[in-house]
Design a protein around this nucleic acid. Structure first.
Lengths: 84, 84
DNA sequence: TAAGTATTTAGACAAATATCTAAATATTAA
DNA sequence: TTAATATTTAGATATTTGTCTAAATACTTA
């Protein structure tokens, strides 16, 4: 869970997750949605991957990223446990 | 939400929230549960307060902290929105 | 194979952060 | 009012983090 909270503690990374809601995107597509450089986005994607919040697969020269909602379920459970 | 994610991005602060589950505690009580100094705990409590994850009231020379679950509901909603 | 496109890795740097000690503030009790 | 207890504030420091540029890697196509 540590890596999940760390990954979520950044506005850009949270926006990346929102971008991936419903549709998968290449690293390049994601990078174009922001003003920061591609290496920076790549780094953010790495942190999201480490937290297992996104998964990636290589398709030719592209890397396609997807949202992984499994970890979000874990996070929900963490909150519920804290609440009661 | 930024302050919420920031506040949750620390193991000690997450443990403080767990300690406050069900029962209110003074700053001193909370500090005793950890190996770090009282000023450090005080700082963590400040960050949790800023995120509105805890509330505090003064009772004599003590400051009593409580968990505020309202923000946790907001966080749940954020996750749900991301999921569908 | 050489050139072009997509992405990541490496290294540097400024800003943010968690921690500490020392001091200040607030409250209670002698 | 003085002493003791509870908590916070201030200031310092080492570590982490987000960003950048330059270079490396991977794949496609001419």
């Amino acid at each position: 869970m540590n890596k999940v909270f760390k990954a979520l503690n950044d506005q850009t990374r949270r926006e990346i997750l929102n971008l991936l809601k419903g549709k998968d995107l290449t690293a390049g597509d994601i990078a174009e949605a922001f003003q920061i450089t591609k290496p920076s986005i790549s780094h953010h994607l790495d942190i999201l991957s480490q937290a297992d919040l996104v998964t990636s697969r290589k398709q030719g020269q592209f890397v396609i990223y997807s949202l992984n909602t499994t970890v979000l379920d874990d996070l929900m459970q963490w909150i519920i446990t804290l609440k009661d």
